[in-house]
Amino acid sequence: MSKKNKKAETTTGRKNISKRQDITRRFLRNRNSVIGLVVTAIFVFVALFAPILVDYDTQVIQQDIPNRLLHPGEDPDHPLGTDELGRDVMARLIYAAKMSLAIGAMAVIIAIAIGVVIGASAGYFGGRVDTILMRIMEVLDGVPSFLMALTICASLGASVYTLMIAIAVGSIAAQSRIVRSAVLTVKNNEYVEAAKAMGASDMQIIFYHIIPNCVGTIIVQFSVKIAGGILHASSLSFLGLGVQPPDPEWGAMLSGGRAYMLDNPTLTLFPGLCIMVVILAFNMLGDGLRDSLDPRLKG
């Protein structure tokens, strides 16, 4: 196959590069997507090493009332100040990165896993299966995803796990619709027909031939939806329905700082900045990935 490709490329006068090199080059040429990638990588690094960077028991949840509401820079031990219970804001922000990214990533993994199965079946089988599955998705779509997640969290009780499930349920419908349309474009390709002619079963065709060819779409969705997941998680925590105290989460920290907005504005400023920067980075990364993996979708 590679031989044939090379030949085709040389005849069109292009350099001999693989598809992967081509994608990488296109991605690196876009400044915004590289910035997105770097910032995302920093946040992922901080999230992964949060338990090493800060000590949960002595820094993240340890209350220190005499030193409460210190301003940033007032005490060298607390570079970003302390919150209403005297806990170090910096340590909490770092630990919250772990919570937010883990919730966002897990929620999206669940949603994509279910979305891929539903979308691929609907797109591949078509006809009645398609109609029924898409009608069910329409029902899920009937309530805005945030309100759906809120209902689930309020009814099942707030916890990190409920939060993941709630956010996932809220985005299954959109996910399956995107996978479905990707499958519809791939489905009629010759290699699918060839696989069918060779006697492959439907499952084999879906998992070995169709889904791998929709991977570009799925990767782009992963990046964009994580941004949405983190936003939903922080909104729910802001309303008191997400991550529960004493665990730190950006939305919850922001909500706690509301009462001190006049004298300690940084308590609401920093967590909000974290949410904004991480979401912006994931969105920029997602845009860059979309442009390089699937240039047809370029907006």
Partner: peptide
């Protein structure tokens, strides 16, 4: 894109 990325509740609080 930044407008999309700012959480509404935070932007609201900052404006207040």
């Amino acid at each position: 894109l930044a407008g999309l990325s700012i959480p509404n509740f935070w932007l609201g609080l900052m404006l207040i």
